[in-house]
Every structure is written in structure tokens, then in C-alpha cells.
Design a protein around this nucleic acid. Structure first.
Lengths: 335, 335
DNA sequence: ATGAAAGCGCTAACAC
DNA sequence: GTGTTAGCGCTTTCAT
């Protein structure tokens, strides 16, 4: 990075190139009505002076050429790829990416959105937001939004980009069934009736549907929240129950890894005594010691697709797009 | 979130409260010279109208009341806590936090810094930057910066906030030595002579120093980069060498977990045949199946301290501060 | 095709 | 203690 001795503004460039500021502005925005020679002349000055337009000033008047990405927590390895996929597309299109991360409480997200609004972002990407459909709609009236990992297939004013979690749940049931586990259960989060858009819920619904299609009216569902049961007491109880299923589909690798660990401690062999499938295909699932089958979501593509949605929205598209990308079962030793 | 029908600016508030815009501005900034009654009056309007000052406009003129956080990658679970610690402090002080994440290449970081500069952030927090000291200095001439997880103890124009990695390395050697492992080696990253500020290097130097103090002139150092050796061939080779050390200090849990896995596959018992200590105290290290001792860095406090450094810098402090927080060995089954 | 000039929403002199 | 006003760096009519 070169040190910028003094402030280089659009005026500096205009003076240097011997043209007006509006001419420079037009070159900057590829606007209509500038001669090729003027453009080259100005561009040369811009390069030589190392001029960068002030996003703050642009934001005040028109576009900031920046997309805001909102996350809740940074734990999920999945996020990194989604963002990488999005930034690649946005970079290419000359857009910057800024992120804001909430710390797990719901009301925080509204504050983050306001921050983004106050900086005049051109669009927002919301990853796994914990907001009601109406709230999302209200946001979408103020700024284009692309919602990732949150199912709202009928939303009319914003786009959604998801891995097909319902299909993933079905695939899990099918794979376990075909492997001979006809009593498979699911290990997932506590039921959240207020969050029908939740990815875990979609996986659950898909799982149940597929089991019912195979004649199991009430497949067993075990629920446990992330924080609870730190000593693993309930988990052990579930695993030691004499009538426990011989196979479990876990809503995420985080759950699956805990099961693998407790099973090992209890002398329950995987997959001999218990077959497992997780979700997310996280690095930890791939560890030889863990070695649990899992669903790969195409995170890079989710990110890229979201970015493209935002760009076309900004360019004026007004009808909604709802993308559903197929997850893929990665088979490992656990089933 | 309430829907903002029309744009509410400082003018709207001024009109509503029946005062001038400068009066409102002063209330906003807690500036000197506003009567209590006027302040209350204005504040009431602000609340009732749901007015939020435009960060974009503020940024153009003065402070944006926003701190930028720069990361390279989102993989490390450590990051989440650093950011949580920082946001808590910044929130409290009325500052917003915006993040930008680079994708592993060095030159990207300069671009991110420029983005932050273009948005007129009031300060920057750089987490584990891969930049030379001179580059950091040049940045610090343009904006206050707090550098985290990057050792530059003699820097005069910016602050550094680190876990004491050198001490951590020494503690690891000491702990292994005291447990009877006098031939302990270290498993770390490829040497980077161009990165003396690197945390891994500091751990290595501390480890070597402590071993030498105990009479081991040349403790064994094994090096392997993150991406290489995906099949684990070199790792297996190292583990199967007849004269391999009976204890390994790994620069991070990522390395340690790989060792645990390969050891298990090769029938090498931990800690019976091989003792291990990792670094970061990541969740995966705590898994019963992995169960590897590790150093806890006080990430929350690192974040909070960095935020405070930034705030005092913004308030005018000009002498540097260099914080070194003590890491703590969390003992588990691996040693 | 080019440039002059009026703002965007705020802050900070400076006047009153 | 309060209000007036000149910008900050850009975009965008509107003349020329």
C-alpha cells in the first residue's frame, strides 16, 4: 500500500486532467456521454494519482457500491464459503462487501440492518436470519435483500437462496432405509413453531415425510438444544435406552460429532451398533476419528447465487427468485 | 423494526422540535452548550420520530462512529470471541462495528483497508494481519489501528494486543518436561523468515528457549503447512519414525487434531505412546474422542482490550500500548 | 460532449 | 444558549 500523502478527491483528479469534476464523475460511473479521449485522459490521471472515490460521499448521494452481509455468529464453517462465493462475484462486479455479525440475540439483527441502512448499502445479504417473514418484508421495502439459509419460498419482495433441506432430510431417510435401518430416528433442535423457515425444521419435515412414505407413521425425533446438556447426561440416556433406534440422522455435524463421541465413550460402535448421518460436511466430520457421513451444501454456489440475485435486484428486477440447490450425501464410515 | 415511510433527517427533527439543525447536531454529539430543556425536547423528537443519523453523512464530515474489523478467513473459532469481546465494548461506547474478510491472499488486505478508509471508519482492528511492519506503520498514519495476534512489540505508532505466545511455548515445553518427556518436539508451520511477528513463530521460539534452558540444544521441530499432505503421508512418516519424540507440542489445535487422528489410525496410543499439547483450546480439542490438552487464549479479553485501545487512540492518545495476555494450559487426557 | 451548479445529511465555525 | 451557514466529496440535472 502506498501512502497517500494528501487527500486526493475528485477535484484533484479533475484539475490534474484539466477537465470538470462532472466529467470525472461520469468516467467513474461509466456514464453516458463522454468521449473516448476524455475517458482515457481522466483514467490516466486516476491511475497515476491513485485516486479512490470516497464511499462515504458516494453513499450520501447515490450508490455506495457496497453490499452488506449479516451473520449471527461466526461458528459455522459453512459461512466462510458462502461469503467467499459472494465476494468473488461482487468483486468482479465492482462491489465491495462489508459484514456485520450479531451475537445470537434476535433484536440485534434489526440494529445491524439499521447500521447497514445508515451506511447506505446498496443491498443486503442475510444469512440464516432469525426474523419473521413480515420483518423481512418490511426490510425489503427499504433495500434489496437476499436471504440465505432461511426458507420463505412464497416471499414476493425478496429472494431466497437455500440448499434443499427438505430434500436432504428425505435423502437421509432413504439412505438409511436402503442400508437396512428401518427404525431410523432423527436428532435435532428443540421444536420452534415460530420458525417455520428454519433449515433444521425443513430437514426434519423431509425426514418424516420419507419415513412415512415407507410406512413408518411416527419416526422418532430426539431434540436437544446446542447449549443444554453440557455434561452429556441426556445424550447418554438417549443412547443407552434399550429401544433406541439403530440409526440417527443428525440435523448438523455439531450434533453428530457429539453423538460419535458419547457413543465411543459408552462402547457403542459406529456403525455396528449405531449408524449416523450428519449435515454440513464440516471438516470435523471428515476426521478419520469421527468419520461421519454428511451432506455437502454447495456453500460457494449459495454465496455466488445470492450475490447475483442482489446485483440483478439492484439493476431493477422486481419479481422474486427462490433458489434451491441440491445437497449431496458424502458417505463415510458411519453408515 | 418499524417501517420508515419517508426519510427522517436532522432537518425533520429540527422542524419537529422547533429548533435549528445545529441544536439537534449538538444533542446528537453531546456537544457543549445546550440547555437541559432543549436537549430533552430534541431527544423526545428523536425518539418519537425514530430518527437515526446517517452514518454516510457523518462519515463525510467528521466521525462515522464506526470501527472496522479486518480478518483473513473465518475458520478460527477464536475469531468469534475476539469480535464478541470487541463489539461489547464498542457498543457500550456508542460505536458500530463493521467487518471485512479477506480470502487468504496478502494483497487483499490492502484493498480491505482502503475500503474501510473510504467509508471513513474511525479506527481499524486488524486480526492476524499478514503485513510487514512498515505497511502497518503506513496505515497507522492514516487511521488509528489496533493489531491483534501479531507481535510487533516495538511499534511506535500503533497498539498490539496479543496472547503471550512466547510464554505459551515455554509453558508447553515446561509442562511436557515436568511430565517426564525430555525429548519433546514441536509440530508447526513451515518457517517464514519474513514473518517474525507470527504467533506460531513466537510459540516456537518460546518452546526452543525453554528446552535449551533444560539442556536440549536442538529440540526437534517438524514443519507442515495447512494445505499440504492431505493424504497424511508425511504425517504418518513422522509418526512412524523409530526415533520420533514421545511428546509433541502442536502450534495449533488444527495440527494437534490431525496428529490425534493419524496416531489412532496407526495404533499409536495417546498419551501412552505419544503425548500431545495443542493451542487455542478449540471446541474440537475438548471432544472426548480427541481430548487434547491445549492453551486457552483469553479471546474475549483480547477483543475488549483492542476495542479500548482504539477508543483511547481516537480520544487522542499517541503513545503506543502493547498488551500481552497470559495463555493458560488446559490439561486433558493427551499428556 | 462538456461543464457549472445545486444539493445529499451532516458538523463546526462563527454570529447573535 | 441558540441559530446561520459554509463546506465535506460526490452525483446529477441542466445549460452550453
Amino acid at each position: 500500500m502506498t501512502v497517500k500523502t494528501r487527500k486526493i478527491t475528485i477535484k484533484t483528479v479533475a484539475a490534474d486532467a484539466g477537465v470538470s469534476v462532472s466529467a470525472v464523475s461520469k468516467v467513474l460511473r461509466n456514464a453516458y456521454g463522454v468521449s473516448e479521449s476524455l475517458r482515457e485522459n481522466v483514467q490516466e490521471s486516476i491511475n497515476r494519482l491513485g485516486y479512490r472515490p470516497s464511499s462515504a460521499a458516494r453513499a450520501m448521494r447515490g450508490q455506495s457500491f457496497t453490499i452488506g452481509v449479516l451473520l449471527v455468529g461466526l461458528d459455522n464453517p459453512f459461512l466462510n464459503k458462502v461469503i467467499a462465493g459472494a465476494s468473488a462475484v461482487l468483486d468482479e462486479a465492482g462491489f465491495k462487501t462489508m459484514m456485520a455479525v450479531g451475537q445470537a440475540e434476535t433484536h440485534i439483527e434489526s440494529k445491524l440492518i439499521e447500521t447497514m441502512l445508515d451506511f447506505k448499502m446498496d443491498g443486503l445479504m442475510l444469512i440464516a436470519p432469525r426474523m419473521a417473514a413480515e420483518t423481512l418484508e418490511s426490510v425489503s421495502r427499504q433495500i434489496p435483500i437476499a436471504v440465505v439459509a432461511h426458507h420463505e419460498p412464497d416471499a414476493r419482495y425478496f429472494d431466497t437462496i437455500n440448499s434443499d433441506d427438505h430434500f436432504g432430510g428425505m435423502r437421509a431417510a432413504e439412505a438409511l432405509w436402503d442400508a437396512g435401518y428401518h427404525d431410523a430416528g432423527m436428532f435435532t433442535l428443540p421444536e420452534r413453531l415460530d420458525r417455520p423457515a428454519d433449515v433444521a425444521l425443513q430437514r426434519e419435515l423431509g425426514f418424516i415425510e420419507a419415513m412415512q412414505a415407507r410406512g413408518v407413521a411416527n419416526p422418532r425425533i430426539y431434540r436437544m438444544s446446542e447449549g443444554e446438556d453440557d455434561d452429556g447426561h441426556h445424550l447418554d440416556e438417549m443412547l443407552l435406552a434399550p429401544d433406541r433406534p439403530r440409526a440417527l440422522f443428525c440435523w448438523s455435524d455439531l450434533h453428530a460429532v457429539r453423538v460419535v463421541n458419547h457413543a465411543a465413550q459408552l462402547g457403542i460402535r459406529v456403525p455396528g451398533d449405531l449408524a449416523l448421518i450428519g449435515y454440513d460436511n464440516s471438516p470435523v466430520a471428515a476426521l478419520p476419528l469421527v468419520d461421519v457421513s454428511s451432506f455437502r451444501q454447495n456453500a460457494l454456489e449459495l454465496g455466488a447465487t445470492s450475490a447475483n440475485c442482489l446485483l440483478t435486484r439492484i439493476s431493477g428486477r422486481s419479481h422474486p427468485e427462490h433458489h434451491l440447490l441440491p445437497p449431496e450425501l458424502v458417505r463415510r464410515g458411519s453408515m
